[in-house]
Simulated scan of single mutants.
Amino acid sequence: MTMMNDEESGNMELMKTTFPTFILIVLSALMTACGNQYIVNDIKLVQTVGYDIIQNGVQSAAIIANYEEQGAKKLEFYVTNSDNMFDSIPRLKTKLDFPLEYGQLRLALFGETFARKGIKATIDSLIRNPKISRRMQFGVADRDALNILNIPQNKSDPYFLSDMIEQNYKKGNLPLTNLHVVNFNLYGKGRDLFLPYITEEDREVKINGIALFEGDKFKTTISIRDALLLKMLLGNSKFGSITIPIKESNQKQEDSFLMYSIGSKSKFKVISIGPPASVAIHLELDALVRDVPPWMDLTSKDQIPSLEKSMEAYFEKEIQKLVSFCKKNNVDPVGFGDLIRSRSNKWNAREFQEHYGELETTVSAKVKIVQTGSS
Rank of each mutant, 00 (worst) to 15 (best):
A277D: 06
K252C: 02
K247E: 00
G274M: 11
D255Y: 02
P293Y: 04
L258V: 06
Q251A: 15
I262T: 08
Q251Y: 13
I246K: 02
P293G: 07
V292M: 04
G263Q: 12
S266D: 05
S264G: 13
I242L: 15
F257E: 09
Y260D: 15
L258P: 03
S266M: 07
P276W: 13
Y260F: 15
K265F: 08
P276V: 06
S261V: 07
M259W: 06
G274H: 12
S266K: 00
D291W: 02
E254G: 04
N250R: 03
V270R: 06
I246L: 11
S278M: 04
I242H: 15
P293H: 02
V292H: 12
S249K: 11
E248K: 14
Q251I: 01
D286V: 02
P245W: 11
D291C: 04
E254L: 10
V292I: 02
K267Q: 14
K265R: 09
S249L: 11
K252G: 03
F257T: 03
P245L: 07
K252H: 09
S256L: 08
K269G: 08
M259C: 13
S264H: 05
S249G: 06
I244W: 00
L288F: 12
T243I: 08
P245V: 04
V279F: 08
L288I: 06
Q253G: 01
G263P: 01
Q251C: 03
D291L: 11
K252R: 13
P276T: 09
A287Q: 00
K265W: 01
T243C: 12
P293S: 09
P276Y: 12
I273W: 08
V279M: 08
S256H: 13
E254I: 00
R290P: 00
H282D: 08
L285R: 01
E284W: 01
A287F: 02
S272F: 06
A287P: 03
I271M: 10
F268P: 00
I262Y: 09
K267H: 14
S272T: 03
S266V: 02
A280T: 04
V270I: 06
I244K: 01
K252Y: 09
S256F: 14
Q251E: 13
P245F: 15
S272D: 15
I281P: 00
K269H: 15
I244M: 12
I281T: 04
S261R: 00
M259T: 14
I262Q: 14
T243H: 14
A280P: 00
F257V: 00
K269I: 11
I271V: 08
P245M: 12
S256P: 00
I273M: 10
S264C: 11
D286R: 05
V292N: 10
E248N: 11
S261E: 09
P293T: 10
L285I: 08
K247S: 03
I262P: 01
